[in-house]
């Protein structure tokens, strides 16, 4: 199908883009890579009157080292993330999860910030951002604000970014001394996760000193598996302890049932994949 008609602008500054969105009101929509938005425009699930293309804003690109964290520009494409040395060195979890996103063509256009702002619970990067305790810099008519991952994912396809706001960058703490792993289960190639698990583990010899686990597609937003984290932290770094903790993966989660999996099956997958992800992250 062909999208409904809309007005198009490609501002070059963040403030101009915010102004264009404010003037456009409720019906204005920001566009990053368009890899989620254009399919929705084509199906007329989205019918904005104004589309503000962020591709001309150079300030939204680039990845920079900021001491104990990396700051990733929202418009950084999946492909750029995959080829970035800073990410490979300091947060390999992002590179590993990004490699499983879609296919080469989509990764050439789709962006890190777009995946997060889109807040699809089946997306691979929201749970990674949740596991990493990322924080989000957002620009709006009233200026800039910073939102932690725990408040960023509000509901299904709804992030804290308001219609007249722009996600500028994502700040991700470096994982020095941590092991990490993303485990994704999907039925066919180029498929969304039925369930995915992002895990980061810090070991102190035979003990698990710290652990973070977040789940993809186990509810309307990415879910932190707090019960698993509590069970792991301070316990032995052993296969038995990880298996016991993983039994609690779906605690508090409200997975949906759909054509690809029932809620019960998703809960089962969450346990199995958590065991695998934590074991790999903890090098067990």
């Amino acid at each position: 199908m062909i999208p409904a008609a809309f007005e198009y602008s490609r501002p070059t500054g963040i403030d101009d883009a915010v102004r264009a969105l404010s003037e456009g009101g409720e019906d204005a929509k920001a566009m990053a890579g368009g890899q989620s938005l254009i399919p929705m425009l084509r199906l007329r699930l989205a019918v904005p009157s104004v589309v503000v293309d962020l591709a001309g804003i150079t300030d939204l690109g680039g990845i920079r080292d900021d001491g104990d964290a990396l700051v990733i520009g929202a418009m950084t494409t999946h492909d750029e993330v995959l080829n970035d040395e800073l990410i490979k060195t300091h947060v390999p979890l992002i590179a590993q999860a990004t490699a499983t996103v879609a296919d080469r063509q989509v990764r050439h256009r789709g962006t890190f910030g777009g995946s997060l702002a889109h807040a699809d619970p089946a997306g691979d990067l929201p749970s990674v951002a949740a596991a990493l305790d990322a924080s989000f810099e957002i620009a709006g008519p009233a200026g800039r604000r910073t939102v932690p991952a725990s408040e960023f994912f509000v509901d299904y396809l709804t992030s804290a970014v308001q219609p007249d706001e722009i996600l500028v960058s994502i700040r991700v703490p470096k994982l020095g001394g941590w092991g990490s792993h993303y485990e994704k289960f999907s039925r066919v190639a180029q498929a969304w996760a039925m369930v995915g698990v992002a895990a980061a583990v810090r070991r102190d010899n035979g003990t698990i000193a710290d652990a973070r686990v977040a789940l993809t597609n186990m509810g309307a937003t990415p879910v932190r598996a707090r019960a698993v984290e509590e069970a792991l932290i301070g316990g032995p770094a052993s296969a038995d302890a990880v298996a016991a903790a993983a039994e609690r993966a779906a605690e508090g989660a409200e997975p949906s049932s759909d054509v690809s999996a029932s809620a019960d099956y998703r809960s089962h997958l969450a346990t199995v994949l958590t065991r695998r992800a934590v074991s790999a992250a903890g090098r067990l």
Binding site: Y8, G34, Q35, I38, D103, R104, Q105, V106, H108, R109
Partner: peptide, 23 residues
């Protein structure tokens, strides 16, 4: 027309893209 099949693939600035999913 659903961004899945890749038959519309072209190179844009040297990178493959699905031309049904680019304006």
């Amino acid at each position: 027309d659903t961004s899945n099949c890749g038959s519309c693939t072209v190179l844009m600035a040297g990178n493959s893209v699905k031309s049904c999913t680019v304006l």
